[in-house]
């Protein structure tokens, strides 16, 4: 089969007067982590919506898992999973009920087993029978991502998965994303945090004013800048380092 999970060519989209995408091109390799970087309002979510068949582009083509999103939306939906910008969990249902619901909607043969496995994998077993409204932000995000993994879609879309999470929860999400890619899932990630892309992504594309202005591996992007100069600077720990060190110590005790 083809080596690319996602191919996008000349994608354009405007909302009334607002020209959001002005011809976007990129390709995502199968089994890689692709990070789409851009500031708020740059059109990242619009691209995700087009690729996940929620929105139709004005022109250009988008092919997901070998299928055109306009021509075969139903088949595209069978090969993807979306974790939207806000944790879309049902707050009135328990964590386990949320997972069983999604497993049923994906027509899996053993929804309860799938739910229990995912709860275990995402460290939510103790909270399985609590309503999702009682979960912390990090737990909710974990449940949200777990819901996307029911059914093992070959391509997963994560739209700003760590926005609004505390540093610990953020590192947890990163760990999960890496695990996914190791197992062969293609991960399409949008983020506004540069370090997130740096930490995770095999390929990075920067979306700015409706176009991809640069794309490539981190090494490729680094080449665009003059070679590094060696300077000696006293490195003070950041507050994040301190926070994580203290939390880490507490957990060891």
């Amino acid at each position: 089969m083809q080596n690319n999970s996602i191919q996008v060519k000349g994608l354009q989209k405007s909302y009334k007067q607002l020209n959001v995408l002005k011809g976007v091109d990129f390709e995502v390799e199968k089994g890689s982590i692709f990070a789409l970087l851009g500031s708020n309002g740059s059109g990242k979510t619009t691209i995700v919506k087009i690729l996940t068949t929620l929105l139709k582009q004005d022109s250009g083509t988008a092919v997901v898992n070998g299928l055109d999103v306009l021509a075969k939306p139903a088949n595209v939906r069978q090969s993807i999973s979306l974790t939207g910008q806000f944790a879309a969990v049902d707050e009135i249902l328990t964590g386990r009920e949320n997972l069983i619901m999604i497993a049923r909607l994906r027509h899996l043969s053993n929804p309860r087993q799938v739910a229990d496995d995912l709860l275990n994998r995402f460290g939510l077993t103790d909270a399985a029978h609590r309503r999702a409204s009682t979960y912390s932000g990090g737990m909710r995000r974990r449940l949200d991502i777990a819901m996307s993994l029911a059914g093992r879609s070959p391509i997963i879309f994560l739209d700003e998965p760590t926005t609004g999470l505390d540093p610990e929860a953020r590192i947890e999400v990163w760990k999960m994303v890496r695990e996914l890619a190791t197992n062969g899932t293609t991960v399409f990630l949008t983020t506004q945090y540069l370090d997130e892309a740096e930490q995770l992504a095999d390929q990075i594309a920067i979306l700015h004013e409706g176009r991809i202005i640069v794309s490539g591996t981190l090494a490729d992007l680094k080449k665009l800048f003059p070679p590094a100069q060696v300077e000696y600077i006293e490195k003070q720990p950041t507050l994040e380092d301190i926070f994580l060190a203290i939390i880490g110590k507490k957990e060891k005790n």
Binding site: T52, L54, R77, G84, F86, A88, D90, E91, L105, R106
Partner: peptide, 13 residues
């Protein structure tokens, strides 16, 4: 509001 319809609509249902 919570994006639950979006989740459903991106699924093969």
């Amino acid at each position: 509001q919570r994006g639950i319809f979006e989740r459903f609509n991106s699924m093969p249902i």
